[in-house]
């Protein structure tokens, strides 16, 4: 049913989703925390910018990313002068594209979860001798756990389904940038419906499974982020 090439495409998809999600959490957790606490007057501008991938056609996003990551682009060009190679049509380029594309899906649940943590819990931790980083690990992250789970799953699932951006900046290099959604498109183009079915079903089931997980998890924990008073 599933050919070797398609297994590789599935593997590339999972690898891309995993790497992107991990990196998104690394970037997203501090950014979301900052956004949830800052009084900065231009915060809304940054929030709009981050939310842009929610409404932008993936081809538009992909197009600009292609320009930026290509040999003449701001990022690709700088890399090339530094002795590296441009990022367009590479796995690394795809990771960057996915991160931009999925950022709002990771950031918003995190930001909401952080915003729901009241200042009191942090004050309690401080009076008990917990330093700022300690407070983050021992109070903020545990209290934001439902948000963390949602962010991780949504970021992962959303990257699984990415198509337009990949098409624009990744192309179709087996083992490097040929992901499942591209492979499905290719099978349909060449009327190989059986193979398209097999791959599509894999993605459908995986996505459904992940969403069931997150909804089930959050159903059990309403209002986790509030203190017991």
């Amino acid at each position: 049913m599933i050919s070797d090439g398609d297994w590789i495409a599935l593997w590339t998809t999972l690898k891309l989703a995993t790497v992107s999600t991990v990196l998104l959490l690394v970037v997203g957790i501090p950014l979301a925390w900052w956004l949830s606490r800052t009084q900065w007057r231009f915060k809304y501008l940054l929030e709009s910018l981050v939310a842009l991938p929610l409404v932008l056609p993936p081809t538009v996003l992909g197009f600009y990313l292609l320009l930026a990551l290509g040999p003449n682009g701001f990022i690709g060009g700088t890399l090339e002068t530094a002795g590296g190679r441009p990022l367009a049509f590479t796995f690394t380029g795809l990771v960057i594209g996915s991160m931009v594309y999925s950022l709002p899906f990771v950031l918003q649940p995190l930001q909401n979860a952080f915003a729901a943590i009241d200042r009191r819990s942090l004050e309690v931790a401080a009076t008990l001798g917990a330093k700022p980083l300690d407070r983050f690990g021992s109070v903020i992250l545990p209290l934001a756990k439902p948000g963390l789970v949602t962010a991780t799953v949504l970021g992962f699932a959303h990257t699984l389904g990415e198509f337009g951006v990949v098409l624009m900046i990744g192309g179709n290099i087996p083992g490097e940038t040929r992901v499942a959604s591209i492979a499905i498109y290719e099978h349909v183009e060449s009327l190989q419906y059986g193979q398209a079915h097999a791959l599509a079903a894999c993605i459908l089931l995986l996505s459904l499974f992940l969403l069931v997980l997150v909804y089930r998890y959050n159903r059990k924990r309403p209002g986790q982020a509030s203190l017991v008073s």
């Binding site: 009191r120 756990k145 986790q224 017991v228 008073s229």
Partner: peptide, 8 residues
């Protein structure tokens, strides 16, 4: 004033 125990 409120006990503010850690819920986790």
């Amino acid at each position: 004033q409120e006990p503010s125990l850690f819920p986790h």
